[in-house]
Design a protein around this nucleic acid. Structure first.
Lengths: 202, 202
DNA sequence: GTCTATAGCTTGATAGAC
DNA sequence: GTCTATCAAGCTATAGAC
């Protein structure tokens, strides 16, 4: 519900009704509306964070010191799409919810804080895959990448409307490889100005 | 205010107070809260639409039948950044507001409807710049592009936090060329699979 | 732990004086 | 056109019976 209507667009009554409990019970367990919100967020965010850390560690142990852009991005994205595919509606909602967080500025801080260590690590890997990149080029690229990831996670029906049903926002298999390609070449175009665009491996 | 807190995060009283009028007056002129929202949206959306149409027409008359990706994207983006630079805070807020619309799903439809003719035309130009593109590749790319545009328009402080002040969301001069490059190569990577990646001009 | 009942406030909207 | 005053409905949150 937070994913679809934003934090202010949902009431405790609606939450209670959907959960088939009383509003008083929500306050008993979560204290306040913000408490519900934080709990919803934290539970899955922690899982996502550890999955991402695991994927990035795995990449590093398997590719001793060699960093290539596409697989680095793929490692960061894999948990998202894997959970989208196998995690059911709950996880799909969560990613929409996270995509939404960028909107309400007071909550953007919360998510930034929660994801900070993972993001920092991801950016460090990007930096190694793009060693000549200017720092602000790299960060702007990451920012644009986040926007793409957010919008494909959101499931607002925009792509269905635009494509007249040809594309579907639930279709992780269609989205994941396109997002990797799109982003990787985007990063290269912005960050790799001073090096050959084709052959990045030395 | 809509840009920063979303539609439900703002009250008529807050709007009235900022405008230094009474809430009754808001209802007198706009009938309902939705009326205020629609008016705020329509006024600037119409301007943006005609500016974009003008830029795209100009491109077509100047480049008789030849379509290249970067300048096509640049034409579509130019009004956004131009108004961001010269339009003052009102226009900056508007673009954040539009970026926000993708969130609340019931309003996504509104913006999709309002922007539809312009978007359709833009996509038609992209199709000519990428003649071998698969239709779903093209539409997914446009969708990811929208996400990047939305996030750089939103001014939530995320990039400032991430970059520790190095990058600033207000800095159109930094963003515009990067967004053009990032998106153009993204489009190519996804859409131009069956053609040479370097030399698109036949 | 779970409910009923309700406090206390804020919301969008309106009626009516001027 | 612009105000004051106020409405009914909705909200979050809590007190207290069970």
């Amino acid at each position: 519900m937070f994913a679809r209507h934003g934090v202010y667009g949902v009431t405790m009554r609606e939450i209670a009704e959907l959960a088939d409990v009383d509003t008083a019970l929500l306050h008993y367990y979560f204290e306040s509306k913000r408490g519900v919100f934080d709990a919803v967020f934290a539970r899955r965010a922690d899982v996502l964070n550890s999955e991402r850390m695991r994927e990035m560690e795995r990449y590093e142990t398997e590719n001793n010191g060699r960093y290539e852009l596409e697989p680095v991005i793929a490692a960061f994205l894999r948990p998202v799409f894997s959970l989208n595919r196998q995690g059911g509606q709950g996880w799909r909602n969560f990613f929409g919810f996270v995509g939404n967080l960028t909107s309400a500025s007071e909550l953007a801080e919360l998510s930034a804080q929660k994801f900070d260590p993972v993001v920092k690590r991801f950016i460090a890997m990007l930096r190694k895959a793009l060693p000549d990149a200017d720092e602000s080029d790299l960060l702007w690229s990451y920012h644009m990448f986040c926007g793409s990831l957010a919008i494909v996670s959101m499931d607002t029906g925009a792509i269905e409307l635009l494509s007249d049903g040809l594309c579907r926002s639930r279709d992780s298999d269609q989205i994941e490889p396109r997002l990797v390609k799109y982003s990787a070449e985007g990063f290269r175009a912005v960050c790799a100005r001073r090096q050959a665009r084709r052959n990045t491996r030395k």
